[in-house]
């Protein structure tokens, strides 16, 4: 097992360059990284939440605004006890073919439920959290949506968060 490192790197810089070539200025590089917090206890004793940019939401809830040219800065609570049949995707900016066959590939709600039932994870927060990743205003995103999700995660009593970009 590799020892955890405090060194933080920009992931996949070549991808940033490629996207910036097509959408100049759309990908930002953060220089003021917030250090990741270390778990202070075992995962089996930890309350875990899940945060996803996959555009997953409970069926019947207000669809994410995927047509807006700047983005949708709202998020959805996804009760962690739901099954994938209770969920749907509203997102047009990534291939969803695989996810439509089994939503767990992009939003592993049932796998996390299984791990919690097996005791590998202490417990799950009452809700998971979802938004869409297509955002044209990173500053607004950071100041509103990211803060709103962080508040909601804390309110749900999360002790650790699994973050999953789509």
């Amino acid at each position: 097992m590799t020892a955890p490192s405090d060194e933080i790197k920009q992931l996949r810089p070549e991808l940033w360059e490629t996207i910036n070539e097509r959408y100049p200025g759309s990908m930002i590089t953060k220089t003021d990284f917030v250090p990741l917090a270390r778990l202070s206890k075992l995962l089996s004793q930890t309350r875990l939440t899940f945060v996803s940019s996959a555009g997953i939401q409970p069926r019947g809830s207000m669809p994410f605004d995927v047509v807006h040219p700047v983005g949708d800065f709202s998020f959805r609570r996804v009760p962690s006890a739901l099954s994938v049949s209770d969920l749907e995707i509203h997102q047009i900016k990534y291939p969803t073919t695989g996810a439509l066959r089994d939503l767990n590939v992009i939003f592993p709600i049932e796998r996390l439920q299984e791990l919690a039932a097996e005791g590998l994870i202490g417990e799950l927060t009452p809700n998971f959290f979802s938004f869409i990743g297509y955002q044209m205003d990173p500053e607004h995103f950071e100041q509103t949506l990211a803060e709103d999700i962080a508040d909601a995660v804390v309110s749900d009593g999360a002790e650790a968060a699994l973050l999953c970009p789509a």
Partner: peptide, 9 residues
Amino acid sequence: GVWIHDGTL
């Protein structure tokens, strides 16, 4: 009926 996008509305 001709949808070029990867996902759904």
